[in-house]
Design a protein around this nucleic acid. Structure first.
Lengths: 167, 167
DNA sequence: ATTGAAACACGACACAT
DNA sequence: ATGTGTCGTGTTTCAAT
């Protein structure tokens, strides 16, 4: 026995969700593919030659594997991780949004089209939409919250300001 | 007047948060730096030459700018964005965690060290810790939730299963 | 801007499933 | 047959002068 509560779910519900999950075409992945992704996660600009050295295969073989992973959709894109505060976004927030159920997609896509929205998730749980928003400062964040709140179909806006990112 | 509620904050509180924010050393950034970051966000493996073409500067100039941005900490790392479901993680969740206030850092760093934790945020708001967790399936997710819940100092675990990622 | 070295692209071929 | 590998050759890109 432990002294914590779990909010909202039981195993039967979780099992049910599985059924509605779209089954993706399986991709054959071996150890080297996983190692490749691990390396690229740490240094997405590593050269094919360098990657090959680490895996014990040639640069050409690496290139072929990458193409395979890209075409299979395992690798969605190569990108760069930046520090929002150094870019002038001093106020980052995770914002939960409660909406009228029939308007979820409307609201979500409208919000996803905004500049402040860095990531948008549709979820089960308390809030149906979760947004990571980058604001210049808290005044700007307040304005963003107002903008979200005044969107047709939105019932409640629950902002959580990010104090620190550990991982 | 709008028919939505905002959870937990008012402007005075937001203003107060600003004070405790660590002031980062400012970095001088011009339009080209921002464009560079925009390009790299879309294709983190673009060659210096290609980046230079788009900005109307030479590859060497691009390299210098990148080095500056890396050393200033604006660019934290180059990485790759993958599709968790194609990697065998069929169940992704955003998990809010309520903890006893004095144990936030303990709990957060313990959770950040786990394999399932892809991202960990410390936040204000309902939950003091927010985790993005990748689980193989819902059974695995249930196990992860249990693992979090039985961590010393955790009072409540609020999982939200990600149904879709829009952005 | 030049230049030598490194990295990359592409074709041809080999081997395994 | 399709996927994965190496090798050779020519081209591009990189970094340091």
């Amino acid at each position: 026995m432990h002294g914590f509560k779990v909010d909202g779910y039981n195993e039967a519900f979780l099992a049910e969700i599985t059924v509605s999950t779209v089954v993706a075409r399986e991709v054959r992945m071996d150890e080297k593919d996983l190692a490749l992704i691990r390396e690229l996660t740490e240094n997405g600009r590593a050269s094919l030659t360098e990657l090959g050295r680490k895996l014990g295969i040639t640069d050409v073989a690496v290139k072929k594997r990458l193409r395979k992973l890209e075409r299979a959709g395992v690798i969605k894109k190569y990108t760069v991780e930046v520090d929002p505060s150094k870019l002038g976004y001093k106020s980052v927030a995770l914002i939960g949004i409660d909406v009228e159920p029939e308007k979820i997609l409307d609201v979500a896509s409208k919000i996803a089209s905004k500049d402040f929205a860095v990531k948008v998730y549709l979820t089960t749980g308390d809030h149906m939409i979760m947004v990571e928003a980058w604001a210049r400062d808290n005044k700007h964040l307040t304005q963003i919250i107002g903008e979200i709140g005044s969107t047709e179909g939105v019932k409640r806006v629950c902002p959580a300001i990010v104090l620190e990112k550990l991982k």
